[in-house]
């Protein structure tokens, strides 16, 4: 159901982007990447914060499901993060003529956050005991979740503000057609995130069930060399 909605919103959203929204007076066609870049960034950051909340619930309750959620949230958000950095670089090249602009606080903050969350994997995989791994990963998710807003404050203070302010500008912000299109695209991207999270969770559940079946059939439960499983598994 969610996946159907995702396709619907994304198709309608990008249809609107190309056929309905007006051309940006200043940036022209290039500005349309805004409808992809900004929703991706907001959804990825919201996913990081949600992972922190799930991490908190995990260490409070000890329920492994919350750890699994936290892991999958971070995983999908990191994937979205790659897309944010790539679309951001393309937008920077299109509007400022450079692939990377250090004076641009939002993009730089996002890079720092992205680098931090990339360390989640090597950190998690370096802890062998499963319970401890889950607990420490949750502590990481909480610490990093708190770090996200703090980092944006510090980086914004350090730089002049040249990021295109599309929403609230002195001239009165977005015309309604752009606002509605943005909202549809935003809903589409958010639903895409939810779909991917669900897919990943189903995958984990299937894996968990498979290894349980294998064990009950008396097969060797140790994974083949080189395929040591490091991500958490759903207990069914």
């Amino acid at each position: 159901m969610v996946s159907v909605l995702t396709v619907l919103f994304l198709v309608v959203g990008f249809g609107l982007v190309f056929f309905w929204t007006p051309m940006d007076a200043d940036q022209g066609f290039k500005q349309k990447i805004f409808y992809l870049h900004v929703p991706l960034a907001i959804v990825a950051l919201a996913g990081f914060i949600a992972a922190g909340v799930e991490g908190y619930r995990h260490i409070r309750t000890g329920d492994a499901r919350h750890d699994l959620n936290s892991y999958v949230f971070i995983h999908i958000s990191v994937v979205f993060g790659v897309a944010v950095l790539v679309t951001g670089a393309i937008w920077a090249q299109a509007s400022w003529g450079k692939w990377w602009v250090w004076e641009e606080p939002t993009l730089v903050s996002f890079l720092i956050v992205f680098l931090l969350y990339c360390t989640y994997y090597p950190f998690r995989y370096a802890i062998e005991d499963r319970d401890r791994q889950a607990r420490y990963a949750s502590v990481f998710a909480i610490t990093a979740g708190v770090f996200v807003p703090l980092n944006f404050i510090a980086v914004r203070m350090a730089e002049s503000v040249i990021h295109p302010r599309v929403f609230a500008t002195a001239e009165g912000g977005l015309p309604p057609s752009m606002m509605w299109t943005f909202l549809v695209c935003f809903a589409g991207i958010a639903l895409l995130w939810v779909t991917l999270v669900k897919l990943e969770l189903v995958g984990k559940r299937v894996n968990g069930q498979m290894s349980r079946l294998r064990r009950s059939l008396g097969e060797e439960s140790a994974p083949a060399p080189g395929t040591r499983r490091v991500s958490p598994q759903a207990e069914v």
Binding site: I112, L116, T119, P122, F123, A126, F140, T143, L150, V155
Partner: peptide
């Protein structure tokens, strides 16, 4: 966090450096 992992010397700078950027 790092002391109980198998790669202590690697994890400390990896986690610490992005966290201290602000």
């Amino acid at each position: 966090m790092a002391v109980n992992s198998t790669a202590r010397d690697l994890i400390v700078p990896l986690l610490l450096l992005p966290l201290v950027v602000p």
